[in-house]
């Protein structure tokens, strides 16, 4: 097993190409090292990307905030600009693991691990985040909801890696929030995770809304119908119930050690109502 720590994107991509499908990117390592120990992963080459500046910085740009793919959750949690604009995403990221894990685990890693239950992903989907990818064919961009294709699988091609995640600048009177259901209060995996980002007009009517839903299908997803159900409403019970129903309908979960189909489906609706209210409160304040 070879460990390499390139300082440029070009080198990193070349190492991955050389590894011929047996290379793994190491950012925080909170998923990869566990898989190595359990014998679930056995790569020939480990490409540590923490020496590539672009992947390690949070940058405020004119039209939003760009988060380097290997920036850890702790750094995101301490970033004032991010907290002001996307508090829901920060909350979601800070739910990942323990304090120790927070100092290592990255949003990029959370995306690449492609767990349907990844906490930061529904929040990123709700926020309308875009992923920047670099590879042998240069740069490309895609929406977060289009990134994972199945549990543990992404549409990254050979030699590609995520460089950053771009969060748009929210419109006036916008807010986002994320909640998850876990039996324990922390150190647990979401049975359902749900993020909402919405915008209100001066009357308090929802003018735009996006709902990201995780842990209830093979990948986290955008539930467009749920967002649409909120638009035009003041989050009255009827609108909330329609959005909740859209979330329940979008569920395609499995029965497993973490939850049942029935429970997961029910909770998706419960969380939609709770999260939408928090997001609206933030948008109004």
């Amino acid at each position: 097993m070879r460990y390499v720590a390139p300082s440029t994107l070009e080198e990193a991509s070349a190492f991955l190409v050389d590894a011929n499908g047996n290379g793994r990117v190491l950012a925080g390592g909170t998923d990869l090292l566990v898989q190595l120990r359990a014998g679930m992963a056995n790569p020939d080459t480990i490409v540590d990307v923490k020496h590539i500046d672009e992947l390690m910085t949070i940058k405020e740009e004119a039209d939003g905030i760009r988060i380097g793919a290997a920036v850890c959750g702790q750094a995101m949690g301490e970033h004032a600009g991010l907290n002001n604009t996307w508090p829901g995403l920060v909350e979601a990221t800070e739910l990942i693991g323990s304090t120790q894990v927070q100092g290592r685990a990255s949003a990029g890693g959370n995306l690449c691990n492609a767990s349907p239950a990844a906490d930061s992903v529904p929040a990123m989907i709700a926020a309308g985040a875009m992923i920047s990818v670099y590879g042998p064919d240069g740069h490309r961009e895609l929406a977060v909801e289009n990134f994972a294709t199945a549990p543990g699988k992404t549409n990254l091609k050979e030699g590609e890696l995520i460089t950053s995640i771009k969060l748009p600048k929210p419109a006036e009177h916008s807010g986002d929030a994320y909640l998850r259901m876990t039996p324990r209060t922390e150190m647990d995996i979401a049975i359902v995770g749900l993020g909402v980002a919405l915008t209100l007009d001066s009357e308090g009517t929802v003018t735009a809304a996006r709902v990201g839903l995780g842990a209830v299908a093979p990948t986290a997803m955008l539930v467009k119908e749920a967002g649409d159900a909120l638009v035009g409403s003041k989050l009255d019970d009827e609108a909330l119930e329609r959005a909740a129903e859209a979330c329940r309908k979008a569920c395609n979960p499995i029965n497993d050690k973490r939850g049942t189909i029935e429970y997961r489906t029910k909770i998706a609706g419960v969380l939609l109502k709770r999260v939408a209210k928090i997001a609206a409160e933030r948008a109004g304040s």
Partner: peptide, 9 residues
């Protein structure tokens, strides 16, 4: 992770 003993919180 999945054998859920309580954590401090």
């Amino acid at each position: 992770l999945d054998y859920r003993m309580p954590v401090a919180s």
